[in-house]
Design a protein around this nucleic acid. Structure first.
Lengths: 152, 152, 152, 152
DNA sequence: TTTT
DNA sequence: TTTT
C-alpha cells in the first residue's frame, strides 16, 4: 500500500556541513539541525526545548550545502525519515534515525552579493569553496530540489 | 530562534496499540506504523521499501487509539520528531527516535459497525474495549486533535 | 527569495474526474475534493464544516486519475496553491484559486478487483476506462508522483 | 469523514499588516504573502514565478502580526484553505480563497535588539506600535501558535 | 458535490 | 510487524 513519509523542519545548523566525496563519484553531506520550541511551563516561565536532527543530503544537494551552508545557517527542509537498523558487537539490535533531505531552502539570506546576473540559471557556482567562514553567496531564489534517484 | 519540527505520515499499523495506564493517571499508547514506498529500479522492476516508525500518543489520543485502532489500521498522522539520548551500561551514547503524535485521522474506514447513531457527537464511547479483534466503530468525522499540554 | 508553497489534503471526491485531452497532447484532469472538519460548538453539539477544493492534474497524473478515481474516492494530495487573475467583462479584477496537484495517493482502497498480477509494475494500464461506476483496480503501492515539467 | 486541510508557506509580506479591531473585541489581521519559485525554462533561462496569498489571522496572532510584522518580513506559515462563496449583484456565483493562519514563525530575524531578557516569557510586548517602519523586536524563539477557537 |  |  502506498504511504506517505514526510518531514518538514525549520532550524539552524549546529556546525558546518560534513561532506564526503565517495569513490563512486557520489557526494554525501551530513548536517546537524536544531529546531527550537518555546513554551511556558505551569508556572508561566518560558522554557526552550531544542531537538537535534541528523540530516543527509546526496549529490547535487550535498554540493550546494557544502558551498552555501555554514554553522548557524537557517534553513527550511523537506525530507523523509529513514531508520537504519543493525546488530552491534554484543548482538543487540540497534537503530539510528536520520532525515533524508529531498529539498531545502535557505532562509533569511538577503544574499550577500546582489549581482545575480547568472544567466545560466545555475545554482552551482564554479569556484571551489576554500574559506571556512566565507560561504559563497547563494543566487537568490534557490530552492534546491533534487530529482531523487536514490529511492531509499 | 523559533523552529518547525513537523512530521506527516500515512501508513498501516504493524500490530495492535500497546497502551499503559500510568499511576499518575496519564495514558500512553505506542504504535508501530509502516510507510511503504514503491519505485522502479534501474531495470524497471517494481521494488517496495517499507519504513517503520515508532509513534507515541498520550492521554485522550492514547485512549482513542486503544479503542479504535488495530493491527492493519490505516491512519494519517501529524506529529513531531523526538529523540531520546542516554548512556548505556558501557557508557556509550545512545539515541532513540520516535514520533510524538499531535493528531491523527483514521482513513478508509468504512467503519465496521454502521450503527453510529451517536447523537452526542462524542468520540469517546463508554463501553470498554474487551475484544482483541473487534475495535469499536469510530464515530464519523473524528479527527483526534489533542490540546497538547506536554510540551516535549 | 526562494519560497515554499505547499498544500496537503485528505478528502473525498465530490464527483468523477473531468478530463480533457488537449490538441497539444496534454491531458488535464479537474477534481473537486471535500475536506470535512468536525468540532463541537459552544453548546457541545457536534458540527461539521466542509471545505471544497478545486484540484488540477496534468498528463500522467491526469490519466491515472481518469482511470482510478471516482466520485467518493478518498485520496491524500500534495500540491501547491495557484491563483489565476483576470479582468471580467465589467473590468473588475477577478481571481480563482485552485490546487495544482504534485502527487496523490489513494487511501483505504481495499482495491475492488484483486487481480493485480501486474508484473510490469506499471501504473498506467492500457485499456480505456469505459464504465461509469467501475474504476479500474489500481496496482498496489501506487503513489502518483510526477516529474513536474510545468512550473506554474 | 474526517479530513485534512493543511497549508505550509514560506514567503515575504507584500505590505504592512492591515489590522481591524472589531466592536466585538476580536482583532483581525490581513496579510499578503509572496511565495517565489525559481526554475529554468526549456531554453535554460532562469525564470521566477511569484504566487500571492491572502492570509487572515485572528485575535492573539493578529496582535502579534500587528506588532512585529512589516512589509518584507519573511515568515513560515501553517494554516488551512478557506473559500468564501457568495452571489454578486448580477447573481453570479463568486468565490474568494484565503489562508486562515493557525501558526506562524518569523524567519531570519536575528532580532533587532538582542536584549530579550524578557523573563515573563510573553510574546506580546506592552508598548503600542506607533512607528511605521520600526516593528518592535520580537522576543526570540517565538512561535505564534493559537488555540483556535474559531473552527472556520 | 464527498464522506461518516 | 503493516498494506497491496
Amino acid at each position: 500500500m502506498a504511504g506517505v513519509n514526510k518531514v518538514i523542519l525549520v532550524g539552524n545548523l549546529g556546525k558546518d556541513p560534513e561532506v564526503r566525496h565517495l569513490e563512486s563519484g557520489s557526494v554525501v553531506a551530513n548536517l546537524t539541525l536544531a529546531t527550537t520550541e518555546a513554551y511556558k511551563d505551569r508556572n508561566g516561565n518560558r522554557v526552550e526545548n531544542t531537538e537535534w536532527h541528523d540530516l543527509e543530503l546526496w549529490d547535487g544537494q550535498a554540493k550546494v550545502a557544502e558551498q552555501y551552508l555554514r554553522k548557524g545557517s537557517q534553513i527550511f527542509v523537506e525530507g523523509k525519515i529513514k531508520t537504519d537498523t543493525w546488530q552491534d558487537e554484543q548482538g543487540n539490535n540497534r537503530k539510528r534515525t536520520k532525515i533524508r533531505v529531498l529539498s531545502f531552502t535557505m532562509l533569511g539570506s538577503k544574499g550577500g552579493a546582489e549581482n545575480n546576473s547568472n544567466s545560466s540559471g545555475s545554482n552551482t557556482m564554479s569556484q571551489p569553496n576554500t574559506g571556512q567562514q566565507q560561504p559563497a553567496s547563494m543566487p537568490s531564489g534557490s530552492n534546491m530540489e533534487e530529482e531523487d534517484d536514490l529511492p531509499f
